[in-house]
């Protein structure tokens, strides 16, 4: 009997949507290994997030309340997760592959002496082994791996799994842990990018801009198009590096991994590290004035045109 522990992600008491496909992964892992799914929420006055997580098919939902979880800090999260993982007899501990999950879960893995699988896109039982698939080399290769440790820690690529269907809620169990607050690390600040648009990783439509836009102001044109389509706005690394867009908008190997129904890349060349973040989109559109731009090699529809002409025209005609 295996126990798959999902560490949920919440911000200010609100469950982050990345948690749901992670529960989806956990259910698939539980099916492969014959086990159950337990969800853990850490927070301060954040039981609402635990309630929200309780309707997606987990056998148990555990909530730990503590002032040290009010703001996220790896040094505070990791010992608590380790304690709970041991107490529930977890065989797999997983978290979404967000910057939070990527930060604390390897720390948890090391403390548990657990093998670590990064960015899993599949899990299955094959000839007695639990086999995970994970993309490597900027998404150009997929590795099949298995773990030889008693516990395995896994970050989950959320675009690869579905959120489970909503059903009856299980009651949230509030539990306590003995670990306190770290003395060698302190949270100072979180500078949040404010936006009324959907988050990049949840949006059905994403409009992304690249260095070819040549200024932050030019992103305003993408925002107008995005508002018309209810889309999120993203950017290439070069556009972020140039200061045209905030780092939170970056799509790619070092940014967000997205898989919307529709991705429209504007003045983006299509470097492999950018493709690594959006190649799983259902429909890819590229607008670029260079017909040789590599992004056309992966686009369903390409328009060879100056962005400053094409984007306003597109916005006005939709």
């Amino acid at each position: 009997m295996s126990t798959i522990l999902v560490v949920a992600e919440q911000l200010g008491g609100e469950l982050k949507s990345a948690t749901l496909p992670t529960i989806g992964f956990a259910k698939q892992a539980a099916a492969a290994t014959g086990g159950e799914v337990v969800v853990l929420v850490l927070g301060s006055g954040a039981s609402g997030a635990a309630e929200a997580a309780s309707r997606f098919g987990a056998s148990r939902v555990l909530y730990v309340d503590g002032a040290q979880y009010a703001d996220y800090l790896a040094e505070n999260y990791a010992p608590a997760v380790v304690e709970v993982a041991k107490s529930v007899g977890a065989t797999v501990v997983c978290a979404p592959s967000t910057t939070t999950g990527k930060d604390f879960l390897p720390r948890v893995a090391a403390l548990l002496d657990a093998g670590f699988v990064s960015d899993a896109i599949d899990v299955a039982e094959v000839d007695g082994d639990v086999v995970y698939k994970r993309p490597i080399w900027s998404g150009n290769l997929i590795a099949r791996v298995t773990s030889h440790t008693d516990i395995t820690a896994v970050t989950v690529r959320t675009t690869a799994f579905e959120a489970p269907a909503e059903g009856a809620a299980v009651s949230v169990e509030t539990i306590s842990v003995s670990s306190g607050a770290a003395t060698n690390a302190a949270f100072v600040s979180f500078d949040q990018v404010k936006t009324d648009r959907p988050p990049l990783t949840d949006a059905d439509v994403v409009i992304a801009g690249g260095r070819g836009l040549k200024s932050g102001e030019a992103f305003g044109m993408l925002e107008e198009l995005a508002d018309k389509l209810g889309a999120a706005v993203g950017a290439s690394r070069a556009a972020v590096d140039s200061g045209y867009a905030p780092n939170d908008w970056q799509i790619g190997q070092t940014g967000k991994i997205i898989a919307p129904n529709l991705y429209i890349g504007v003045a983006i060349s299509g470097a492999i590290q950018h493709l690594a973040g959006m190649k799983a989109s259902k429909v890819i559109v590229a607008i670029n004035k260079d017909p040789e731009a590599p992004i056309f090699q992966v686009s369903d529809f390409g328009l060879v045109e100056d962005a400053f002409k094409a984007v306003p025209e597109l916005t006005s005609k939709l």
Binding site: F116, D129, T146, Q297
Partner: peptide, 30 residues
Amino acid sequence: PAIEILGYELPPQREAGEIVDSVDALIDRL
């Protein structure tokens, strides 16, 4: 090692699609 690499596979490849000649054509295809 704790994690063993069993093997590798290639991800599904995307094909280059259609180059459209105008914004109107793009809207039509979408």
